[in-house]
Design a protein around this nucleic acid. Structure first.
Lengths: 213, 213, 213, 213
DNA sequence: CATGAATGAGATTTCATTCAT
DNA sequence: GATGAATGAAATCTCATTCAT
């Protein structure tokens, strides 16, 4: 936002960042409830009180981390400006592109990703509302996207919301397995994304004639 | 399960059941950490100390609930004894059948389902291990299943573990939306299951020739 | 209230009483803000947590003490059922009687009295409201009383509310000096009460002719 | 007080004054314990550290405010140089005069007055000692004054210390009601002072023959 | 079996005060 | 003189669990 002359980040911002990073480590290692503010400040090397100069409390900090994560994720998806998708081939290329972007972002934020999927829902009702809101947005975006693709004849007619939901689920579980649990190590990100894209596309193609029988 | 001579359930077992049910309500309403043992016993109308005659503690009870849920889920899937799947048509019918079984079970246990997906991972490391174990099992089963189907020429060659993972994800997210968040209300369970099955099957069919380009 | 067969006070009530008495000591010795809950429980010999089984917290306990005190004081005054006051002589006797009652009550509760006058207003706004309420009541009662006496020709016409206010003040300061600060030791309670009564009566008598000049 | 050459007040003195006034506002609004140094400096628009260039700390500032108030009050009373009081009529005039002086001073310092009566005793033992000292002085002065009046035959023989105490109480409660709680609004200061004076004088007149019966 | 009063460890949070710049 | 980030001591309160009755 503001930059140019002045130092990239003010002293204040840097300290804040330090605390957030330490918090991510601690939350990742112990989980929200077992994590102590004392552990966070100890890792940064500041006094207990300092923490409260930067955050309202442990919960607010956690919410902020989750909120940041959601924003990063959603904006990565939303920033995606697909070219003119006029063929299934282009669609496949575009989906692969956005899939790899998301993958990169998540791999760069493994710990927050893990924290998010592990326990973001188990901390505070307000936070749940926020998370829910992001899901609704994402699902709405995808549902619309599906509808457009259908109009262009690229995917078949179906319940687009259900399709969007399934898509989100596929992606989520893949993320959790690969990034949180470190499984699927035999497959490269590229291969996995390709599977996701192909599965999505095949599942939406017209040639689902079996269902007619 | 066990019955025959003695009264259906001993007094002890009934009280235990009562406490578990009360716990489900309370955990559902407040979440594990905000739930108090005092609230659970109050709902049943027994004294605080009584709780500890039936359970080792709050966490053990929670683990038991999750464990029960996992067993129920896994056994519902495992009990499924598919006939001879020798055509994609039969496959579709069988998948639909098992999908509806699972749906029924989950709808009968909405609250535990919600608890499971919301916060089962945020309680204790031991429990996480248990849950992880179930996932591994499920994924292994599905991976094998996919491999068999492929051998029989019913689905295409691909990374079966990734396919299994995507499948689990699709189903999970659908469950969460429909059962935990009460969305997708415009679609009947039957329709949803059909979407899942068709999507799974289409995504596995041979006709994924686009990927060759 | 309830008695007869069962023990005068339940175990619970006795423990509560113990804690209240200990609290009075501690509040008296250190003042509200310097008083620690740990000191209170230590004096009784119970664990820290026990305190919170009986009171919502330190402030609620303090409020309760003040509230008890006010109730005791007001009821002592209100319970006073003066006989037919038809002469200044009877009036004087009656006032002396009630004055001695109040004196007795306060001497029996020296420490709470001291706490009340020292810092009851400096703890919480809600409590201030309660205290204010009691003052309003007391002043209203006295104002009415003065009006009646005037109608009966026992005291002169004047601003009865101002008179009531002055009366309350006289009594209060006397209480504070005698009971809280242990001064005025050369005068017996009887003498002091007599001074108060005579001063009140003289100040209300018709013979204030000087003011006419 | 001090002036002549230098600017009315040095920059330092003016800033000090600003802080004291801000403190009065904050203490009045929130009470001593709830008042934060940060609020005081914020109101003046200086940094937190600046506060400590002018005062030793929060408590010292509070003590200074109370001390100023006491000095102002006592000096207002002490500055009173009564003419030759040789008749009850002159006495009445003189008392009225001093009463109105005091009234004026208090009305000019409503907030400190409120602070003083609400919680000056609940802050620190040292301060209590100071306050106590002022009371003793005031009571001694009044006791002496009463003794002199008696010698001159202007008031009756009685326990002069008790009389002084009652007098102080009357005045205090009137102040609290009128200035702190804003009641007694139907009576003008003049009327109230007159009531006080007349009540005092009547209560001290010889004609208290009823007490003899 | 049932009770429920008592326990007590320990984490969060506040805010007056300091001091290097 | 002025700043304001950092300090850190210390107190309240919670609640799962125990155990004597």
């Amino acid at each position: 936002m503001s930059s140019e002359k002045q130092p990239r980040k003010s002293r204040r911002d840097r300290r804040r960042e330090e605390l957030k990073n330490a918090a991510i480590e601690i939350f990742f290692e112990h989980g929200y409830h077992a994590a102590k503010v004392s552990q966070i400040v100890e890792r940064v090397g500041v006094a207990q009180g300092t923490f409260y100069l930067y955050f309202e409390g442990k919960q607010q900090l956690f919410s902020e981390l989750i909120s940041d994560f959601l924003e990063l994720f959603v904006s990565t998806v939303a920033d995606w400006e697909p070219g003119d998708i006029n063929s299934r081939k282009v669609l496949r290329q575009e989906l692969t592109r956005v899939g790899l972007s998301v993958t990169r972002v998540l791999l760069d934020n493994k710990k927050v990703t893990a924290i998010f999927f592990r326990e973001s829902q188990a901390v505070a009702p307000e936070l749940n509302t926020l998370i829910r809101h992001s899901y609704e947005m994402l699902l709405a975006m995808l549902t619309d996207f599906n509808r457009i693709l259908c109009k262009r004849g690229l995917i078949a007619e179906m319940n687009f919301r259900v399709l969007a939901t399934m898509t989100v689920g596929m992606v989520e579980r893949i993320i959790v397995e690969r990034i949180v649990h470190d499984t699927l190590k035999d497959a490269e990100p590229e291969e996995i994304v390709e599977h996701l894209v192909l599965h999505y596309m095949a599942g939406t193609s017209d040639i689902v004639d079996e269902s007619l029988s």
